[in-house]
Simulated scan of single mutants.
Amino acid sequence: MKNRITDANFPRTGDGRVYHLGLRQGEVANRIVTVGDPSRARRISKFLDASPEPFVLQSERGFLTITGKYSGTPISIIAIGMGIGNMDFFVRECRESLDGDMAIIRLGSCGSLVPELPVGSLSLPKACVGITRNYDYDFTAATTESSTYRSSNPPYSISRLVEGHQPLQLHLKEVTEATRPEGASDAAVRADFVNASADSFYSSQGRQTSFPDHNEGLVSELLERVPGVATLEMETHHLFHLAAVYPKPPSELPLKSTASRPVLTRPEGEISATGSAPKSETEQEHSRASRGAIYATAIQMIFAQRQSQDFITPEEVVLRENWAGKACLEALVKFNVQSTQPDEGSVWAKL
């Protein structure tokens, strides 16, 4: 740690940089493509405008941010690594580093569970579920009965569905189809499936190792319980979840009656420690929402087929990555973001 941290609740350096991504206001755009692999971020960044030269920041915690312009529009490409924890760092720290709406597309790889999505396909999930390992389950038990998944203490938990932002998803699908390259004429592009995000590449995705994970029936249980589930990976559910629960800006909130007085968080007349009157619950909700809305969707490259055990070739990866990466950029710059932070003082203005 090179700089003193000023706030233990939401750590920042004295010059305003967030703790894990290393960013500060003006270094991240309202439109973001997020990937796992830093090399993928660098390869996609070649599609950004040559001028101004993109801003590049590698944080001490391994997050890579590349901010520049695409067709004259500010955009960021951020590599976050793998897993729920890193997705949480990314969304929360970006949200606190910029004003206005956020439009986020997750570009990653995944495994397919259904024959309709063979290796080389692109899936744009309409919704996600999360799969988490139950640490209270007795993993030292000798066997796992199929009924264990329906017990009060199953080895794995499957969450309820959370939807992505449908307008952005459908817009991305249109752009992806319109930019289909030669050599991918037969690749499936689907936007009608559900994705599952697991908290482990191995146990919570039903892979068999020497550990007693009790996951032999997990994939079958997932397919039975979640209609339309087709892909498995590790990040998208948490992105969709955070976008869905983030408070809507006042303009998108339903109108509330003013006939009754708002409920106060303290007894009437009590003054807060700052010397100001306490905020009503409505005022607090609007205050939390002041940064803008979060719109999120994803596009996934099918690298593995769990039924056939097929795996993508390096040549196919290059073709899909270029195709999907450019589609993400095209879709984001054409997507109407209602509120954006000003260019003044931003990295793209300086560059």
Rank of each mutant, 00 (worst) to 15 (best):
P118Y: 02
D310P: 04
G62P: 04
D213R: 05
A259W: 06
S112V: 11
R207P: 07
T258C: 06
G22F: 01
S152T: 06
G292W: 01
G120E: 01
R61C: 12
H214R: 11
S109R: 08
I44H: 00
G228S: 09
P342T: 15
T282D: 14
S276Y: 13
L172H: 01
P125N: 01
R24K: 15
T236M: 05
L122P: 05
P278H: 05
I5D: 06
E216I: 06
P247Y: 02
P212Q: 08
G81V: 14
L170W: 00
S59C: 07
E224D: 14
V56S: 03
A8Q: 10
P262N: 11
I66S: 02
N153C: 11
Y135I: 09
S203L: 04
A277I: 04
Y137W: 12
P167T: 01
G345L: 09
P115R: 13
Q58C: 09
N30F: 10
P227L: 01
S272E: 12
V333C: 13
P278C: 08
Q305T: 07
I80R: 06
E27A: 03
G85V: 14
R266I: 08
M87C: 08
K2P: 12
N336A: 14
S59Q: 08
Q169P: 06
S159T: 12
S121H: 03
A178E: 09
I32S: 06
S109T: 14
D138Y: 01
T236A: 12
P125H: 00
C110A: 15
K46C: 08
D138S: 03
P52D: 03
T6V: 13
S112A: 14
G275F: 03
I131V: 13
P227Q: 02
I104L: 14
S146Y: 12
C328L: 08
T140W: 01
R95P: 06
S123R: 09
V229I: 11
L122Y: 04
T282V: 10
A50Q: 10
F63Y: 15
A178S: 13
R320S: 14
Q208K: 15
G164D: 00
M1E: 12
V337E: 02
E283M: 09
T231W: 00
F303R: 12
V189K: 00
S45K: 00
S123C: 15
E315W: 05
S51F: 07
D138V: 02
P155W: 01
R306Q: 04
F63H: 09
F89P: 10
G206I: 13
P115I: 04
P262I: 07
A103V: 10
T209R: 08
A327D: 07
G16A: 07
E315L: 14
G269D: 07
Q58S: 10
L253E: 15
E145V: 05
V263K: 13
G16W: 03
T140D: 15
E96H: 11
V317Y: 00
I294C: 03
S151W: 00
G16Y: 02
H238A: 14
N86Y: 02
P212H: 08
T140H: 12
R133M: 06
S272V: 13
G72A: 07
A127D: 02
D343E: 14
F89L: 14
A331H: 04
F63E: 06
D138I: 00
D37N: 05
S146V: 14
A103H: 05
E27T: 03
L64Q: 01
